[in-house]
């Protein structure tokens, strides 16, 4: 991807609690990705190796729901430094598969996964790991979201249109492009 010039808008992609499928769908844009990359600078993404979230980002695409304290910390940080925040994919928009744990209390869930299954050293991992929030929440329940792109994952076409529109300074009309589960 091309090096940053001062005039280009900046784009970030963020991976919270998702399966990475939405990022795969971004990559699925194939050669169009090259076409787009002339128009923006990718300044933060799990796809590239940047450690710090920049101070100012024009568009951030969020994959995944807010499931752990680390997710929550991250999304608040991202929100504070982003102009247009995009919930990308059902996990970010509805909670989707990660939220299927919501009817079950966290402690029960951990016990069920880590205990009583015949392992030698039964214990719930805690050290240096993010801890689960009581409920998985869609991004907009935690911070304000500007654009919602449902779909699991949203198609490469949809993502291409969304990014193009945003880069052109327009708010994309999503309803015609994608739907829950699509």
């Amino acid at each position: 991807m091309s090096k940053s010039t001062a005039s280009k808008p900046t784009l970030a992609t963020v991976w919270l609690d998702g399966c990475s499928g939405c990022h795969m769908s971004i990559l699925d844009m194939d050669e169009r990705l090259v076409e787009l990359s002339d128009q923006f600078d990718l300044v933060y993404s799990p796809l590239v190796d940047y450690k710090e979230f920049p101070a100012h980002v024009d568009v951030a695409l969020i994959e995944g729901s807010v499931s752990s304290d680390e997710d929550e910390r991250k999304i608040r940080l991202v929100r504070a430094h982003t102009r247009m925040l995009v919930s990308l994919g059902d996990c970010a928009v509805t909670g989707n598969v990660p939220a299927m744990r919501n009817p079950i209390p966290v402690s029960e869930l951990l016990d069920c996964v880590y205990k009583g299954n015949g392992l030698l050293q039964e214990q719930i991992p805690a050290e240096r790991l993010p801890s689960l929030l009581p409920r998985v929440r869609p991004v907009h329940e935690v911070v304000e979201v500007d654009v919602f792109v449902p779909g699991c994952p949203p198609s490469a076409d949809t993502i291409f249109t969304v990014i193009s529109e945003l880069l052109a300074g327009r708010v994309p009309q999503i309803a015609a492009l994608s739907r829950f589960g699509a």
């Binding site: 509805t94 939220a99 829950f180």
Partner: peptide, 8 residues
């Protein structure tokens, strides 16, 4: 209720 379209 719990509508998870992607796996429905």
């Amino acid at each position: 209720r719990n509508h998870v379209c992607s796996v429905c």
